[in-house]
Design a protein around this nucleic acid. Structure first.
Lengths: 161, 161
DNA sequence: TTAGGTGCAAATTCTTTGCACCCTG
DNA sequence: CAGGGTGCAAAGAATTTGCACCTAA
């Protein structure tokens, strides 16, 4: 299985190299490391998480390069963002059709695949709103860890306390 | 139909009044206006949009009150946030099971309902990850307006240009 | 070689907090 | 009337930008 993962990573890196060159932008170490970081982790990291991780291997990288690179990858269609917004974002390098399990408490997101869910029948009325590219299912719940940590009521708040 | 909308709004406001009192927090004008704003518009506004709208009827309201009120409503379970994160958020006062159509270009979000989609079979393997509260379908595409505006390639950026 | 990319530092923008006065219950 | 709630102003974060040097092609 580790073998499959490696293959997936390699395939995505290859696709990235190709797309970057086709778009006529340069393939720098920074860009490679940053993209690799999102691909390698199954997680859907936010900007700061990516920044810290990349800094391990590349101590001089700057946070603004991370921002610029992420949006560039996004413009090239090499990564998607979780949720509908572009502000305060998390990135996803998995372009294959897939779905998300989201913990409503801690924000954990895990990909999963399901042929049934991927074959959903989209209501016809939606075409009034616009074109349909794809459909993803977001399953919401409390992840195992948050259940253990005891979650009496949803009454806590954001990051830096 | 306008009648039905009014009813929905009224019902949600009533639920909000009850929940707020039950929680032992005060029912101020500001809180009422802010919640009303999210309920009344079918949109899923972000903080700034809510702030501007509420200021029309209540010119002295401050942005920090809007923030505080939104998170309070969220803690009380009276509104949900779109997407998995709590940063840079958009709010949704529709607590009934529903789905979203999202424009990948401009970020427009529209609710829609579908009995079939709401009756989805959730893959059993997911219970390993945690409990399942509900499942929402996010249909992604280009909204009619963005199609008209011509969308050659996804190469534009965020808000304030 | 040379245009695009990067790092740095400063500018913006977004969000939260401390405090004195106000208003709901 | 009392305690939570609000507005204001200022602090803190998060994100973007200008610019001189660097590097992939």
């Amino acid at each position: 299985m580790s073998n499959n993962v490696d293959r997936t990573v390699e395939r995505r890196l290859e696709r990235m190299r190709a797309a970057v060159q086709r778009a006529g932008v340069k393939l720098t170490h920074q860009r490679l490391e940053i993209f690799n970081e999102i691909v390698a982790t199954g997680e859907h990291p936010d900007v700061d998480t990516i920044y810290r991780a990349v800094r391990q291997r590349m101590p001089t990288v700057s946070i603004d390069t991370v921002y610029r690179t992420l949006w560039m990858l996004h413009d090239l269609g090499l990564v998607t963002t979780l949720g509908p917004r572009q502000d305060g974002v998390r990135f996803d390098a998995n372009l294959d059709p897939h779905h998300h399990y989201v913990c409503v408490r801690c924000g954990l997101v895990r990909d999963f695949e399901s042929d049934e869910l991927s074959a959903l029948e989209i209501p016809a009325g939606l075409t009034q709103l616009g074109s349909v590219v794809d459909a993803r299912v977001e399953v919401r719940g409390l992840c195992a860890q948050c259940q253990d940590a005891g979650a009496p009521h949803p009454t806590e708040r954001r990051s830096t306390p």
